[in-house]
Amino acid sequence: MHSNKGTSLIDEIEETLIAIILGAMTLITFANVVVRQMDGNILWALESTVFLFGWLVLLGASYAVKKGAHLGVDAVINLFPAKGRRALALISITICIVFSFLMLKGAWDYWANFANLPGTNGRWFPLGFEDSFRGKGWYETNDIPHPAFLGWMEGFFNEGVAYEKLPRLVPYMVLPLSMALLLFRYIQVGVSVWRGDIDRIVASHEVEDEIAEVRERLGEHG
């Protein structure tokens, strides 16, 4: 509904990443169940699946905007003529864009210091970047081991000191990434509303479709 013809590079990366996360969660959980049956335990399995689930939820929010899959009630919207629906959609999408922008600022400010980067100044809108801050690149996760292929991070974020566990900047990276994607998707929807291609943000009627399907089945068997 909201996407252009063809799949853009961002779409492909987004969908591939979601698929990888789902696969990784399944494999880790399955492997841990098997190991537990042999009286063992994968110490980092729980923490890693929690982080992966967080990635899935946050990335899924923007993906659902792209697909128009967020559920919504449009009973009031349908009472208005086409121009009124478009005006309400523009008001709604403006609120969504402002909200996602504020979320992006908050997400960056939370994550930045973990990557030895400055957060933004300003309570609501960024007015610049911090002049001084305490880098937290040395913060590690509790159980997830640091993979060898990420060894280069030690020189960039930990003054050359070897990590024993995965640095928190890696799992927390999803915060600014997902909020940036969410903002991007809402801007895409806003452009579609402005052009007159759509007259509402949410167009998913999965619940209504399921109710109609149940009624049809009950009618067949009634």
Rank of each mutant, 00 (worst) to 15 (best):
Q188T: 01
I187R: 15
K105I: 03
L166I: 02
W111Q: 07
N121G: 11
S192Y: 02
P176D: 02
F125K: 15
Y163M: 05
G106Q: 14
W108G: 03
Y110K: 14
Y139E: 07
F157D: 00
R195H: 08
R185S: 04
A107V: 03
E159T: 04
F157H: 08
G155A: 04
T120G: 02
W111V: 02
G106K: 15
W152V: 00
E208P: 06
V174F: 05
I187Y: 10
E164C: 09
V191W: 08
K136M: 10
R200Y: 08
I187H: 10
W111G: 03
G151W: 05
N121R: 15
N121C: 11
L182R: 15
F101Q: 09
R134C: 03
V193N: 08
G119C: 06
P145I: 00
P145K: 03
E140L: 10
W152G: 04
M173E: 09
P126N: 07
F114P: 00
N158I: 05
V191G: 05
K105W: 10
E140R: 12
R195V: 00
F133Y: 14
E210Y: 14
V193T: 11
G160L: 00
G155C: 03
M153V: 00
Q188F: 06
P176E: 04
A115E: 06
I144Q: 04
R168D: 01
V207M: 15
K136H: 11
F114C: 03
D143T: 05
Y139F: 03
E208S: 14
G128I: 13
L177D: 05
G122P: 11
H146N: 01
L169E: 08
F101L: 14
E206Q: 14
A203Q: 14
S132I: 05
E130L: 09
G196L: 01
F184C: 08
E208Y: 13
E206K: 15
P176A: 08
K165V: 00
L150F: 03
L182K: 14
F129M: 12
P126T: 08
G155N: 11
R134E: 04
H146P: 00
T141F: 10
V189P: 02
K136D: 09
S132H: 13
Y172D: 07
P126V: 01
N116R: 13
G155Y: 10
V191L: 10
N121H: 12
E159H: 12
F149L: 04
V161C: 05
F133T: 00
W124A: 12
G122Y: 12
N142D: 00
N113H: 14
L177W: 14
